[in-house]
Design a binder for these strands. Sequence first.
DNA 1: TTAATAATTCCGTAATAATGGAAATATAAG
DNA 2: CTTATATTTCCATTATTACGGAATTATTAA
Lengths: 119, 119
Amino acid sequence: MTDIKPAVDKLAALAQETRLRIFRLLVEAGEEGLNATAIAGALDLAPATLSFHVAHLARAGLVNSRQESRFIFYSANYAAMDDLIAFLAENCCLGVACLPKTAAVNSTGKRRRLVRKAI
Amino acid sequence: MTDIKPAVDKLAALAQETRLRIFRLLVEAGEEGLNATAIAGALDLAPATLSFHVAHLARAGLVNSRQESRFIFYSANYAAMDDLIAFLAENCCLGVACLPKTAAVNSTGKRRRLVRKAI
DNA sequence: TTAATAATTCCGTAATAATGGAAATATAAG
DNA sequence: CTTATATTTCCATTATTACGGAATTATTAA
């Protein structure tokens, strides 16, 4: 039996308007991500509020962070989102029958750049 | 700009273990669905608790209901789940790059039957 | 009708989540 | 060393969610 808790955690992380906006912003920002102040500025959030939400996303594994000088950059974890989508498709649709629209989704070129991690 | 509220509502509906279990049970049950008592029995839930959660799922558009004699049958709304998956793929992955695992998902034959709605 | 079954609503309680000001903790720049 | 900037943690407040017993509504069967 598939363990549903990681999926529940991810869903809960995304099931809040502010957090979903943060995540979408990070997806658009690409691999380099954005630092906390930039995110807060773009979405008009108090620092403490941003910190709270971004920590929630990180706990669920949906965002990564890296320190760069005195900034902390957050970036979307695409693999984690892929896991979630795969879970929903497998467990909550049972396969291809539920995916007509999803199949129609193609690269829109909106993501800024795609850098493969060094092996 | 895509309106994210319907997506947030669906995510919130699924972001709770009991509700996700209910939804998965209904997906497995297929088009005919299950009545409230059957769901409550399968998942060991108090009637009021089941009612609360299934209403939440229905509000988000993820389940349909139909009265049949003195039973109310609930069934998964596959199209709504497809919409959600499409939203996540489009807005939270920006296309095909995030879908390697999803692409690998194929019909597993677990859904009991697939009845096309009359045109 | 009356009794039985199915499901919901009502309601109080307990738990969890969201918000943001203020203080604390880095890190870097002057 | 001192100041400025970036971010987090602490804390109190308010709002929302989950739970389930008991009462209520609806539908069918006797």
